[in-house]
Design a protein around this nucleic acid. Structure first.
Lengths: 136, 136
DNA sequence: TTTACTGCAAACCATTTGCAAGCAT
DNA sequence: ATGCTTGCAAATGGTTTGCAGTAAA
């Protein structure tokens, strides 16, 4: 992690390492408040500031180390950008499930090539919403 | 339009009709500020308030008359919910293009059925981002 | 040493809300 | 007449920013 940060031109500070650690241990995407809450549980990182969390999330997202996810919530959620995938979010609770689908990715590639206005599609967001078994 | 509102249990007020009119005439999704700007151009609707626009957009979105679109901007964009489709948004300017793809929709249906946590997927958001020919 | 990073507090800004007056039904 | 809607102004809340001090490199 420390090296990845450096390779991206970021300084490997304790705050950044701690935030990345929290994200790496989470099975689900987290928002700034979640991360701050986790940091407060650890005496060593108790004083990491809200602003630092936001600045870190933005910086690492631009560096493509993190991915911002649309969960139809008021706040922004982030996860480590590892393997490309999408999500199904429950509109009733915090449940979330990952999925991936090669056919969809292939079809999206074709759309890119077929567009008359766009020459380059750099990214896409595909999020499903519904009710999990507990909520329905 | 007047009748559609009534059928949905909404009162057909001048403000709502004007907002729907603005959206119906637009070729692209609009945010609250855009709509307010359009309304101000018409003497008859000059005094429609910001709060009214926001309340109308929320209400009509819940009534499924409008669709909220993720354009990776600070504000929320809306369009009339007619035929199901998705968008490609330019990250460099306001360019936007619609697309639809039956194979993707079919694959999404299969994902819904294959989920182990979710019993019902009610909706999805699929947005592509890139640079239009002018911006690249 | 240099310059990026951080904490703190104040500012931002899209959106929401309380309340009294207004209008559609 | 009733109660949903609206305007106005104030509040909200997630996120951003200015600045001076701190610490990676």
């Amino acid at each position: 992690m420390r090296n990845i940060l450096k390779e991206m031109g970021f300084k490997a500070t304790p705050a950044r390492l701690a935030i990345l650690y929290v994200l790496s241990r989470s099975k689900t995407p987290l928002n700034a408040e979640d991360i701050l809450g986790e940091l407060k549980k650890n005496n060593k990182h108790k004083k990491i500031n809200e602003a630092t969390v936001y600045r870190t999330l933005s910086a690492l997202e631009e560096g493509t180390l993190l991915k911002r996810i649309d969960r139809r919530r008021e706040s922004a959620y982030f996860e480590l950008a590892k393997k490309h995938h999408h999500h199904i979010s429950c509109l009733g609770c915090d449940a979330i499930e990952d999925f991936e689908n090669d056919k969809i990715e292939a079809a999206l590639g074709r759309i890119t090539r077929g567009s008359y206005k766009f020459s380059r599609i750099t990214d896409h967001s595909l999020e499903l919403f519904g009710l999990c078994k507990k909520c329905s």
